[in-house]
Amino acid sequence: MTETVSVNAATKSYRKVHALTEFSCSLNEGETVALVGHNGAGKTTLIKLMLGLIRPDLGTVRVLGEDPAAGQFAARRRLGYLPENVSFNMALTGRETLSFYARLKRVSPDAVGPLLERVGLAGAADRRVGTYSKGMRQRLGLAQALLGRPRVLLLDEPTTGLDPALRRSFYEIVAELRADGATVLLSSHALTELEGKADRVVIVNRGTKIADGTIEELRQIAKLPTRIRVSLADCEAGRVDDWIGRTGAWKRVNGHMLEIDAGPGEKIGLLRSAASSDAPVTDLDVVPPTLDELYAHFLGAGEPPR
């Protein structure tokens, strides 16, 4: 993989507030990375370092092989950024706004119409931004971030204000960019929607990286139990009680459903029991630890995984 972003032992403080402490990570070409952490964990500071808006007190940051704070325009043209709270001139139309940013980035004005179409704003392109809903302004912000086919795209809470249909459309765009070789960093609190969307997850707590890996790798490190849920067949209560007594400490969810939390070494045995011919089971679901549960685990652990 080709490395596009490298952060090496970066430390940044604001007077007595330590925003980042010896933070290191790398992002690669054609990769979508989820950056997660509570408010004040250091996510926005990290993004500002990558954008070159601030410099680290210690350590180094390289984006596309260059120091982003050096102000080299060629490098910044290849960066895209969507802040959490977008702000535009309310008197301009959507088309005028995007045309303004295209000129700043020295992108052909021919790109404006297709981008507005891509984010679903073609029908509102000539309306003033002041008449846009929050979700529409967020889509305009995404179009601005996509100008010039950026090689590194930094998105801070990108789906804020988007309805479910537009969120699906947004992640389709992210998948297209990834397939085209772009690096996409998603900073978000919406952990559930990130599952299946990110190649890697970086968890930040108090300015320190406490976990970094694919969701499957984090599951292996955390060793959290897998939830197995079964639907019961219509049969005598005695048969169900006998099967429960032989197979494990199942808990009743309701009259026709049981569940159990299976440790890493128990899962296969429990699944075999639930799938055996004598089991009073008509269906089963396997629910691995979610990103929410992994986040809570690593946040509680307090130490980076080894």
Rank of each mutant, 00 (worst) to 15 (best):
V5R: 11
S6H: 14
S6M: 11
S6N: 13
A9Q: 15
K16C: 05
H18C: 03
L27V: 10
N28S: 11
G30I: 07
T32C: 15
V36G: 00
G37P: 01
G37F: 00
H38L: 12
K43W: 00
L49M: 10
L51D: 01
L51R: 08
G52F: 03
D57F: 03
G65H: 11
F73V: 14
A75L: 13
A75Y: 10
G80Y: 05
L98C: 03
S99N: 07
K105G: 14
V112N: 00
L121T: 08
A125K: 11
D126Y: 12
V129G: 09
G135N: 15
Q138I: 03
L142T: 02
Q144K: 15
G148H: 07
R149E: 12
R151F: 01
T160R: 12
P164M: 13
P164V: 08
A175K: 15
G181R: 15
G181Y: 15
L185V: 11
S187I: 00
T192E: 11
E195A: 14
G196F: 02
V202D: 04
I203W: 00
G207A: 04
G207W: 09
T208A: 06
A211P: 05
D212R: 06
D212G: 06
I215Q: 02
E216Y: 00
E217C: 02
Q220I: 04
K223M: 10
R229N: 10
R229M: 07
D234V: 02
R239C: 00
R239S: 09
G248V: 04
G248N: 14
V253D: 15
E259P: 09
G265W: 04
E266I: 03
G269D: 12
S273V: 04
D278K: 03
P280F: 10
P289E: 04
T290C: 10
A296N: 12
F298D: 00
F298Q: 07
E303S: 07
